[in-house]
């Protein structure tokens, strides 16, 4: 299945219609426990504060109106399993997680380091993070079938 530039030239092909090219380490990290993830800066570390991972946080004036998710997405547990309505970050992949949107989108897949503190003992440690945050803002058709204006974040 091709994703095309407007002139019809393919941007890239995915061999699997349910997966777009994404960061390989996403799948590697998924197998690590939190205990394995957290450690010192000298080892392989990561601070994973996963939120309501696949649920766009609704914002704005229409705080009571939900948006429709995009129909496609990934199946991290394999073909025939639940579809999570998000595509991994990457060129050519749908960055929005909501459907029926006419507006702006933003996607930031970034990494860095920070300091964690055990508030009971005061002990600190250096950890790495790798996050995928997005926004969608504009006019959307809500689950009520009506047009609304709002902003969403994928966090």
């Amino acid at each position: 299945m091709n994703v095309l530039h407007r002139d019809g030239s393919p941007i890239e092909q995915s061999r699997d219609t349910h997966r777009y090219v994404g960061h390989r380490h996403f799948w590697e990290r998924a197998a690590l426990s939190r205990r394995q993830f957290m450690g010192t800066a000298a080892g392989v570390t990561g601070a994973v504060l996963t939120s309501g991972f696949w649920l766009p946080a609704l914002a704005s004036a229409d705080a009571t109106t939900a948006a429709n998710p995009i129909p496609g997405g990934i199946q991290p547990f394999g073909p025939g399993t639940e579809v999570f309505h998000v595509f991994l970050p990457g060129r050519g992949a749908e960055p929005s997680t909501i459907f029926d949107l006419n507006g702006f989108v933003g996607l930031a897949n970034v990494r860095g380091m920070g300091t964690a503190t055990d508030t009971r003992s005061g002990a600190t440690s250096r950890l790495i993070y790798d996050v995928d945050n997005r926004f969608m803002k504009g006019v959307f058709v809500g689950t009520d079938g009506k047009h609304h204006n709002g902003a969403f974040a994928f966090i």
Binding site: P89, P95, G103, G106, N109
Partner: peptide
Amino acid sequence: EFALIGRERN
């Protein structure tokens, strides 16, 4: 690692 902003219709 990857970032973008854009104008989209879906």
